[in-house]
Each structure stands twice: as C-alpha cells, then as structure tokens.
Design a protein around this nucleic acid. Structure first.
Length: 436
RNA sequence: GGAGAGAUGGGUGAGUGGCUGAAACCAGUUGUUUGCUAAACAACCGUACAGGGUAAACCUGUACCGAGGGUUCGAAUCCCUCUCUCUCCGCCA
C-alpha cells in the first residue's frame, strides 16, 4: 500500500518532486492513470474533515457526560443536559456511519494502487523492454536438433500429461519414475544450498491461507481470479509460499536486532492461470500446480537493496551449480508486478524452445506489503517509534521449470538425459536417465 | 462434530455502567546513591488518527481491554454475533 499521508506532503523529497508527483510518474510508467492520485487525495481530505467533526462532538459528549455524572451524584436535576446530549449523540452516530462508508471506500481504493518504482526500473510497456543485466554460461552446442522437454519426458515415460488431464484437468501432470525423483532431488538440493551456504532458515508454511493474508501480500483485491478458492470457506490455495511466509509477522512489531531475516520455504503453488488461455499449453511450463523453493527476507529499510542483490546471487548460485546457462533482466515498468518496487528475473536457457524462459523472480517490495500487513520493527534507542520494515521475495528456484531446463540442456542425441553432477548424490548416484 | 472454560497493556493479573488508558507486580528505559558487581530509591514506560506548533520536541482532542454490532447522555463492565485458545468426549493421518 502507498502511504496516504505522504501524498499530502508537498516537499520535493524525491529527486526534486513531491511524493505525489513522483508516484504519478510511476503510475504512468506502469500504464495506469495519474488521476488516481488526485482521487485518493480528495477522498482523504473528506475523511479528515469528517473525523474532525466527529471528534469535536465526542469531546463535547465526554465533557457534558462528566457534568451529568456530577449532578446525578449530588442528586441535582440533569434532564436538561440529557435531552441535549441525546441530540448530540444521534448526530455523532449519523456522521460515524458516513465516515465508515468513506473509510471503506478509501481503503479499498488504496489497496488497488500499485507500488512505487525504484529509479533503476527501465521505462517500457512489456516483456520486450526488460533490460538485460548479464548473461552467464554458454548454451551447449548440440550436434542434433534439441527436443522440447515434453517430447523427451514422454519418450522416457517419466512425464504423463494425458493422464494428468484425465484425472484432474488441463495443466495437471503426473511425474513418474526418474522425473519424480529428480523433482524431489532438486527441492532437497536447493534447500540444502540455501540453508548450508546462503544462510537461510527453512520453513514449511501452510499451503492454504485466508483472504487477509492474500491482501497483505497484494494478490487481493485486484488479482482475486488468479487463486484457487475452496468453496464455502475462506481458504485459498497459495499461489506462492511468498503469501504465507511474508505474512508470518503480520500485525507484529519486531525488534531491530531481529532484522534481517532470511527464510527459505518449500511449497507447492497453485494458480488458476485465468487469462492465460492458449499460452504454454504444452508441457510443464505453465501448470495449475508446481513446486517452488521460495526465498523471503525481512529487512531494515536501509539495507533492503543490498539484500536484494544477495537474494539474486543466492538464486543464481543454484543455476551455476547445475551448470545451466541463464541471463538476468531487470523488469521494466510495464512488466513489473503490482507489489514490487524493483524486480530481477532470472531466465534459463531452453534449447528445445531456443529461448530464455523465466525461472526465478526476485523482488524488493520495500514497505508496500509491510504497510498492508502492518509489519514493523522498533529501532534501537529511547522513544523510537516503530517503522515499517521491507519485504523481499524470490524464487530459489521454480522446481518444475528447473526440471524442464535439465531435460532440455542435458539431453543426449539418443533421447537419454544426463544428470547434473551436483544432483547425482540426491538420486542414488544415477548419472543418466533412460534405458541403459 | 458434541460439552464446558476463557481472551484486559511486553508478561502476570485486578477491575460488573461515569472518579479506569486502565490498580498492583514483573520485565524494560533513564537517573540518584554506591570501591566494582549486586541491591535500594525515583521517574519514565502502548498504538493509531485528527488539530495546534516552521519543526524533532511538545501541547490538545479522539479511539482502542480478542473482532464486529447493539442498548445508553455515558460501556473493559450489560446484550447479540463471530474468531481464537484451553479442557473433556467422539472421529481421524
């Protein structure tokens, strides 16, 4: 959420711009209307006027209330005052009802405004204008034309798309034999790396959450259609472990010494993929259910961009160890997510598709989620007021897509697939998938 | 799923309609005393919103005793609904 108070501050604190104007630029860069700022400001001005009126009435009530108590005590007649206060009370109640309506309206409006953008975010309309930061690793040259992962998987009888569709529906798949084993091996390998080398603490979150948590991280109210909802309940299948893990400290005030925190979570993720009909319908790229190892950080505001770089390199390390070629891009203003101030995507090379595809997304949300979920910390020192902390999340990595990348990058001419060195110990020292 | 008990400030825990933003104790912060540590004593010790103040400070007002609603001039206190926690029973991996 955006700081509504900051919108009223006209001081040019943001590169010579007031916050309101700075934010207007961000809105336009994201392809939204700058007028939203003026609407928010107008609603808030109305709210403040109403609050002032109501509080003046309440102050009067409290003052006269004390007089009434006095008179009753000394057995004087208070009926005159009582009659007056009945009117004041009624008027106050009517105004309070108006205020409730207005506050709901303002709150809902604010929840639909996207985050500010960091200065590094390039301007652009869509995916095509993301800015490449670097390329790492050379795509292997293959003496044959590389196959796509679904062909490799079906031929080895380790991916079963048809039966997944029969049993559940489109975008559900059975992983069998070596694919299933490699999926689990990848999860364990990623977790071990983040825990033992990168300094994360592991957490397994609930795989369903309530709507409040989804509001906290920013999926709700705007992106309600993207998550699976369990009918007749307030349970929603998590679209990413970011939701339960980031909400871990919702409503809490941490001590400054508790920051930063680095958590690594394993969870399956469930996405309805509404609006992506026809996109990536073949194979494992876009599924309703997939596994992910997720990195979440809670950071001091002054340190969050440092932590963001660390998170990126922690995720890259997995690809380096698996010896998969990839590139890193900074998402442009038109492609970056609703809650992020800055996002790096890591895209892995898929020879079967002859292109780089997203395998991780690392975002600094600054205080956007912290404000929504009310997550703060108390700085050291006497009389220090609680401040909103910064939250970051990133995939470390998307497991299904990593499996795809291995199948495509490690395929052999005869249809078999080599197992990356670091993974072999997690798979009973299997070196090659396929008939001997 | 059934029966019962409970939810008050960082913690323990008083408080059944106005003098309670809330006793007391513990923890915490600051200070005084003191060879050191310890102890003793004193003060401070929640959050949000609105108004004032150029402004950090500070001042004023309002709200908050699990959440929401109701009764009342006035609610931590009375009524209703919900959530959560605990105990017992049933069921279950």
């Amino acid at each position: 959420m955006i700081d509504i108070k900051a919108l009223d501050n006209d001081e040019p604190l943001f590169g010579g711009l007031s916050f309101a104007n700075y934010y207007k630029n961000a809105l336009m860069a994201r392809g939204e209307s700058a007028d939203l700022v003026d609407t928010a400001k107008a609603l808030n001005q109305k709210r403040r006027t109403l609050v002032h009126e109501i509080e003046t009435l309440k102050a009067q009530q409290n003052k006269v209330g004390a007089e009434i108590a006095q008179k009753k005590k000394s057995k004087e007649d208070a009926s005159q005052l009582l009659a007056e206060m009945q009117e004041v009370s009624a008027k106050g109640k009517a105004l309070s009802t108006d205020l409730d309506t207005l506050e709901l309206e303002l709150h809902d409006f604010m929840l639909r405004l996207p985050n500010v953008l960091h200065a590094d975010v390039p301007a652009g309309k869509g995916e095509g204008e993301n800015k490449e930061v670097k390329r790492v690793g050379e795509p292997k040259s293959m003496a044959f034309s590389p196959k796509e992962h679904w062909e490799i998987g079906e031929r080895l009888d380790i991916l079963d798309f048809e039966r997944g569709t029969k049993v559940a529906g489109a975008r559900f798949t059975f992983l069998k034999g070596a694919a299933a084993r490699m999926e689990m091996a990848l999860i364990q390998f990623m977790l071990d790396t983040h825990i033992e080398e990168n300094g994360y603490e592991m957490i397994i979150p609930p795989f369903a959450v309530n709507s409040q948590s989804l509001t906290g991280t920013g999926q709700f109210p705007k992106f309600k259609d993207d998550v699976f909802h369990l009918e007749g309940t307030d349970y929603h299948m998590i679209p990413t472990a970011e939701v339960p893990v980031t909400n871990l400290y919702a409503g809490e005030i941490l001590a400054e010494k508790d920051l930063p925190q680095q958590l690594v979570a394993y969870s399956p993720c469930f996405r309805s993929e509404a609006g992506s009909y026809g996109k990536d319908t073949k194979g494992l790229i876009r599924q309703h259910q997939f596994n992910k190892v997720e990195l979440v950080m809670f950071s001091h505001p002054d340190k969050s961009y440092e932590m963001h770089e660390k998170m990126l390199s922690d995720a890259e390390k997995i690809l380096n160890k698996l010896e998969l070629p990839y590139r890193v891009v900074t998402l442009c203003s038109g492609d970056i997510g609703f809650g992020a101030a800055k996002t790096y995507d890591i895209e892995v090379w898929l020879p079967g598709q002859n292109q780089y595809r997203e395998i991780s997304s690392c975002s600094n949300c600054e205080d956007f989620q912290a404000r929504r979920a009310n997550m703060r910390f108390r700085p050291e020192g006497p009389k220090a007021k609680p401040l909103f902390l910064h939250t970051l999340n990133g995939s470390g990595l998307a497991v299904g897509r990593t499996l795809i990348a291995i199948l495509e990058n490690y395929q052999l001419a005869d249809g078999r697939v080599e197992v990356p060195q670091v993974l072999q110990q997690y798979m009973g020292h299997t070196k090659v998938l396929g008939p001997k």
